[in-house]
């Protein structure tokens, strides 16, 4: 880790994207990009890995449907069905299979409930978002209309500044690396 970073501030997302590509071509190390809204193509330019949020949702959904099915089996079939086998309104509780159509809605709801909530919790957890956490953005304008690119400045500092100027940064600040 270097002990100095450069904060380059931009005011347009297309210029940020172009600039990030140029920096990557010149082998500069970009620590982070802070932006007020998602920039399409930035994750590819920064070579970020694909997020696995959707995969977690699928897994949580599978857990949800299993939980729903087991809960219903326990409540409706294994207990009551054995003690008091009944057929009320064409819904026999002798086996899970016979009674399945009326279990579908709740098994579906359990799938959605688990997938949506557990994925959201994972999202908060992975992003370290929680009430009481404070913003790590070095500049409060990055939630308004400015874009900030943080670059390691351990080599070719003058070169880096030149590239940033040329690519359209409106401000270039040197900061100590606090990490």
């Amino acid at each position: 880790m270097s002990n100095k970073v450069i904060h380059a501030i931009y005011d347009d997302e297309e210029i940020v994207l172009k600039s990030v590509k140029i920096l990557k071509e010149n082998n500069f190390e970009i620590n982070e990009v802070y932006s007020p809204f998602p920039i399409h193509g930035l994750d590819h330019a920064l070579e970020l890995k694909e997020t696995r949020m959707a995969i977690t949702a699928f897994i949580y959904g599978c857990i949800g449907i299993t939980f729903g099915g087991l809960m219903i089996y326990y409540i409706m079939i294994s207990g009551i069905g054995k003690s008091w086998p009944m057929n009320i309104g064409g819904k026999p509780n002798f086996t899970f299979y016979h009674n399945l159509p009326s279990f579908v809605p709740i098994m579906f709801e359990c799938t959605v409930l688990f997938a949506a909530h557990l994925m959201s919790i994972t999202y908060f957890f992975r992003n370290k978002l929680y009430p009481g956490s404070t913003s790590k953005s070095p500049d409060p304008r990055t939630t308004d209309d400015k874009f900030l690119v943080e670059i390691n400045a351990d080599k070719d500092e003058d070169d880096l500044k030149k590239i940033l100027k040329k690519s359209g940064a409106i401000e270039i600040n040197e900061e100590k690396n606090e990490k």
Partner: peptide
């Protein structure tokens, strides 16, 4: 929740 608008966060968002 301490949102700061990082690139990875936006990707997940």
């Amino acid at each position: 929740f301490g949102w700061s608008g990082r690139a990875k966060h936006w990707q997940r968002f």
